[in-house]
Write a protein that binds this DNA or RNA. Structure first.
Length: 776
DNA sequence: TGCGTGCTTCTTTTT
DNA sequence: GAAGCACGCA
């Protein structure tokens, strides 16, 4: 044990922070207001625990993202040395317990190489089940069924318990979805047969494991004598029970959180977990961190005035002793495009005037779809940016395809992976053959792989050609399987990408998206290389299995483009949790967007949205700009918007309004002035959008490598070049229908419908958005 | 069996 | 805006 004077780091903490850090034994709860140094307390506490002689492998620290875990680990390593920090059990609930489940897989009758189904896999499976049960897929929408199943799992309700629970069944009947229990049952069976778990299973099976075997539970209770949980307000019942069981023996548990920042109820998070913690552990010591070290007084005060409108909360007095700072700027723009331009300009101006780094800026929004307009504006200004979240790298088609090869090789029973790649790249195994194969598999109660393996022995109505093609496919997978466990991950992955034909297929595709997909595959391979270098311990190379086990649990934040250093961050408010920026812009502060349309029906949902806004505001250190647009392009249509009610919740002493027409807005008006002229906008006049063309693409700076976007839908000739040239009477030609004459045009772009009298096939009405027309 | 086109539908947040 | 589906042709 070290001498007291070696704890000099404790001097860097405030009194309360220090007390919380030094309280190691027993149950404790740290209620940490936004910006109060919560992460600091956690890192110092863990470092301190190690310093007083607790072994790193006795500590389990659960964080909300892998990135948070990694950063914390690094900070601890810099305080007490890498050696110790490495052996901490630190990560998300999902990654830590997946690790344990792989180790104990036997006990719950799973292969230790079980696959993890992501949301897309789960939805696909549900879709096939709904079809098989001949249910109406309009009533049993896969997303809704999945969230119902997810709700059950997060509350530890098994398929059997679901069936026999009258209250749940009634609720389903009232919602006119009485058959969900059957889908749930089949879904569970299929996952089991495929050796797969979905996200919620990881937590549920952990509970199962612990309740099933006292021996195993005791083992982990004794192993993890000290448990720390970050973001405790966002844990659900299933997570709560895991923690509860593990801590039952030694009672050394420390939870950290802020009820005001609970924003994941939609995922089953229970704010009560934090409100009731004291009931579970009567001797709990509570530490309240109330001083905000992050933001100016104006920002903190405004945030307080907002959150005070919520009824459900632990009363706290969050305060700041920083500068008063500027008032919060609230801007009204005419359109979403203009809003984006103003933000881009503001960032550029502040960058030039105050020499602020671009990395000091963040633009936050409620929905991922909003990023598009903002991106366009930033690109037009040549401002580098990176997007967190959105379609994550690992969700891309080509990436999922390659990873499905990995998954199938490691776990041949993985049906979702099997279906994905059996005919990609094209091998002439079409849907008819796959349907037949699924039928067989279902009848025998086995996986597709097993059904396919027996294809030679059975009297099956799959013709010779298809049979041979399937056998070839099986052979290829088996060959690749041979060296997967021994060789180094990168080499194996490269081999698979080559031999599966994926690389060749993408290489042959010279369209922009084909090229970008090829690049993405290369990026994944490089990522695997980086991963194995990072994770390697000693001389043993990291094999592919280790990579794949983790890849499904990587979060959006984990793969943010790391090459780009000095760039503006774009993300949803949800992803911004735990981060801070000098200058924050919150865009799209409009009714039905923020608060979301879906939160209208309940007070609870509205309060969660308000907490979400609170989280957004409290990300800002120095300056905060909130904006809303009067009109916005949404779902392909320009629609009117109303200012968000939350803006009126803010105490008006701390805010300052401006609007883009006043001309006094101090961010320079070069750009939006021009835009306005084009739009024919005027403060006193109703805006006229007849000249508004949302299809103008910004000129891109080719030198800037920016976040990749998915290819959009094919753009038609008419849409880009000839829209204004098509009038009644114009002669056009269509690939399918031949020559014709325009006889009528109705509706505004992009929903313009044209009626054309074709010489051969008569009158047809086409939607200009899709129709490819050549003007003659 | 594969592929292109046209059309419908549903629009939140994420481990 | 984008995914999914149906249809019809090769």
């Amino acid at each position: 044990m070290k001498q007291a004077n070696s704890y000099s780091y404790l001097a860097q903490l405030s009194n309360v922070q220090r007390e919380a850090v030094e309280n190691i034994k027993g149950a404790s709860m740290v209620i940490a207001g936004a910006g109060s140094g919560k992460t600091r307390v956690l890192t110092f506490k863990i470092a301190h625990m190690l310093n007083v002689g607790i072994k790193p492998y006795q500590i389990m620290a659960l964080t909300f993202t892998n990135k948070a875990a990694r950063e914390m680990k690094n900070r601890i390593a810099s305080m007490i040395g890498k050696e110790n920090a490495q052996h901490l059990w630190m990560g998300t609930f999902h990654s830590i317990f997946a690790k344990i489940l792989r180790f104990e897989a036997n006990a719950i009758n799973y292969p230790s190489s079980f696959s993890i189904y992501d949301a897309q896999d789960s939805k696909n499976l549900i879709k096939t089940i709904v079809k098989e049960l001949s249910l109406d897929n309009k009533i049993y929408k896969e997303g809704e069924v999945l969230s119902r199943i997810s709700f059950a799992k997060n509350n530890l309700i098994s398929a059997k318990a679901y069936e026999t629970n009258p209250r749940i069944r009634k609720a389903d009947e009232r919602a006119r979805r009485p058959e969900i229990y059957r889908i749930y049952q089949l879904y569970s069976h299929r996952c089991k047969a495929a050796g797969a778990m979905d996200f919620d299973d990881i937590l549920m099976k952990t509970n199962l494991l612990f309740s099933q075997s006292e021996e195993i539970l005791a083992k982990y209770q004794d192993k993890f004598q000290y448990i720390l949980v970050d973001e405790y307000q966002d844990t659900n019942y299933s997570q709560y029970m895991i923690i509860n069981q593990l801590a039952k023996k030694h009672h050394n548990i420390c939870v950290v959180g802020d009820d005001a920042q609970s924003i994941y109820a939609f995922r089953g998070a229970r704010i009560e977990n934090i409100l009731n913690f004291k009931n579970d552990y009567p001797n709990t010591k509570v530490f309240k961190l109330e001083q905000n070290y992050r933001s100016t007084q104006n920002i903190v005060n405004a945030a307080n005035s907002l959150i005070n409108k919520n009824k459900h909360q632990i009363k706290k007095n969050v305060f700041s002793k920083n500068d008063v700072g500027n008032k919060i700027n609230i801007l009204e723009a005419f359109t979403d495009t203009e809003e984006a331009y103003i933000i881009a300009n503001a960032i550029n101006d502040t960058h030039l005037r105050e020499h602020a780094d671009f990395a000091d800026f963040a633009i936050l929004y409620r929905t991922n779809a909003q990023s598009r307009t903002l991106e366009d504006a930033l690109r037009k200004k040549n401002i580098a940016y990176k997007i967190f979240g959105g379609i994550s790298f690992y969700q891309r088609k080509e990436i999922k395809d390659l990873i499905s090869y990995f998954r199938l090789i490691l776990n041949p029973n993985d049906d979702e992976a099997f279906k994905r790649i059996i005919n990609y790249p094209k091998r002439g195994i079409g849907s008819t053959t796959i349907d037949k194969l699924s039928d067989i598999a279902n009848k025998l109660g086995v996986s597709l792989w097993q059904a396919a393996s027996q294809i030679g022995n059975l009297d099956i109505k799959i013709n010779g050609a298809a049979k041979n093609k399937i056998l070839d496919f099986l052979k290829m997978i088996k060959n690749l399987k041979a060296d997967v466990l021994n060789e180094d991950a990168y080499e194996t992955a490269k081999k698979i990408a080559g031999e599966s034909g994926i690389l060749k297929d993408l290489h042959n595709n010279k369209s922009p998206e084909g090229i970008s997909r090829y690049e993405n595959i290369q990026e994944l391979l490089n990522g695997i290389k980086d991963y194995s270098i990072r994770e390697q311990e000693g001389d043993i190379p990291v094999n592919l299995a280790q990579f794949v086990e983790n890849v499904s649990l990587l979060t959006n934040e984990d793969n943010a483009n790391s090459e780009l250093q000095d760039c503006v961050s774009l993300m949803t408010v949800h992803s911004s949790k735990g981060l801070e920026f000098k200058h924050v812009f919150i865009a799209g502060m409009e009714e039905e967007l923020f608060p979301s349309l879906y939160s209208n029906d309940s007070q609870q949902a509205l309060e969660e949205e308000r907490r979400l806004f609170y989280v957004a505001i409290t990300r800002a250190e120095n300056s905060l700009h909130i904006s809303y647009a009067r009109q916005r392009y949404r779902w392909g249509k320009l629609s009117h918007c109303k200012k968000s009610r939350f803006l009126d919740d803010l105490n008006q002493d701390y805010v300052e309004y401006s609007n883009s027409s006043a001309g006094s807005y101090n961010f320079g008006n070069k750009y939006y002035g021009k835009e306005r002229a084009k739009l024919n906008l005027n403060a006193n006049k109703k805006p006229n959008f007849s000249n508004y063309n949302s299809n103008i693409k910004p000129k891109l700076n080719p030198k800037l490598k920016l976040a990749k976007k998915l290819p959009s839908q094919p753009t038609s000739v008419a849409k880009i070049a000839n829209l204004d040239k098509i009038k009644v009477g114009t002669m056009v030609s269509h690939k399918l229908f031949g020559k014709g004459k325009v006889v009528n045009i109705e509706g505004d772009a992009p929903n313009t419908k044209v009626s054309i009298e074709f010489e051969n096939s008569g009158k047809k009405q086409l939607l200009l958005r899709f129709a490819k027309l050549t003007i003659l």
